[in-house]
Design a protein around this nucleic acid. Structure first.
Lengths: 206, 206
DNA sequence: CGGAGTTCTGGACAGTCGTCAAGACTTTCT
DNA sequence: AGAAAGTCTTGACGACTGTCCAGAACTCCG
């Protein structure tokens, strides 16, 4: 009896979550194209297989939908960099791979990443965004910290800065590169790689 | 053709420009409070001494008004840091003053600065914003570069990074601190100062 | 004073927006 | 089979937006 109802409810929950993810995935296309402010629920629905009303069936409001979208993207994004940590054999290789990965992300996922920055910026104004934004920011900081501490291990030297400082520096480099890159600057990606190349070693004692 | 630019050239520039500045100043209050997306022209007018119609008498559209506002703020902002360069006697003093100035700006002008970040972010989506945003960004990069190169002179050591990299790092630190500070983190400003303290010396050859 | 030029008001317009609810369609259970 | 629950569509609502404009109010000079 309880087994049956459990299975039923679980299956329905799965289906519910599945459709949420499906809607979120198609919403991400629109959001990354237009940004938070200019994206309407009708526009999202038009770029999906459903009508605009269904969004309120699966999400409480616009904010919940968008937060869900960005978390979905970020969760997948972080794993990509952990692979670099796992496969790196030498400090130099890690440094090069990391710089290349940031440049590739900037190039291929630039439109997605600008959405993240857009949302993080909204958190500067709207308090309701802050909890989720800070949480995502924390996972990114930890991701960078795994890179840096692995680099330190491979180099055999201690780190001199805090996780927050390390993250802020690379985030600044990436953001700057993103702006230049989207503006059509052909050197943006190389400048990014150069910046990372120079910055990473300086986080350790020479 | 009655255009805004016509009025500028035809009339006594003084009075027209004066009112533009007056409107922009009062608009800055609203903009820094609500951000780009949520600020309407009616809201701006309500926080000024005029009605909403007058904004289109002095500004072509919303974009021109907002750009004018941010340029106004940034012009004043940059000068504040040049004073530090002018008065610094030693490298250590410059480093401490710079770190303190960033922390003070973050604390006192945080709401203004988040507007700048908001606008720079819009440029990631809207092409029409990019020209002005890149121009302002350039003046900020140069401002940081004057700090760094003066610091290098006083230290007697050469710089190892490009202006773009130096600016990106400090900008990242500031932005991170701003988010934490506005979120109520009491350590945000100290973390910022610590990050700047650690970052600035590492831009030079040890 | 009077009229021309300038500045400002407040309403109208044509949209867009998020949200909601009534109902239709589909799936699942009894 | 039919009932129940779940899913989705459609249209409507009020609120809000940037822009424009007719005309009131003001300034200034002859």
């Amino acid at each position: 009896m309880t087994d049956v109802s459990d299975r039923i409810s679980r299956r329905q929950v799965d289906k519910f979550a599945e459709r949420r993810a499906q809607l979120a995935t198609s919403a991400l296309r629109t959001l990354s194209e237009l940004g938070y402010a200019r994206t309407s629920l009708r526009e999202i629905a038009q770029n999906s297989d459903f009508s605009h009303g269904v969004l309120h069936y699966y999400f409480r409001d616009k904010v919940e939908l968008i937060m869900f979208c960005v978390k979905l993207y970020k969760a997948e994004c972080v794993t990509r960099y952990d692979q670099i940590v796992a496969t790196a054999q030498t400090a130099d290789q890690l440094r090069v791979d990391f710089a290349q990965a940031l440049a590739t992300t900037c190039d291929e996922d630039g439109t997605m990443h600008r959405l993240w920055y857009d949302l993080r910026n909204q958190a500067l104004f709207e308090e309701s965004f802050r909890e989720d934004v800070l949480e995502i920011d924390q996972t990114l900081e930890l991701m960078i910290w795994r890179i840096v501490s692995t680099y330190a291990d491979l180099s055999g030297k201690p780190i001199t800065v805090s996780p927050a400082t390390a993250y802020a520096q690379f985030d600044g480099l990436f953001q700057q590169a993103l702006l230049r890159h989207l503006s059509g600057d052909p050197e943006a990606l190389d400048t990014l790689k150069d910046g990372v190349d120079k910055t990473l070693p300086k986080l350790l004692i020479p």
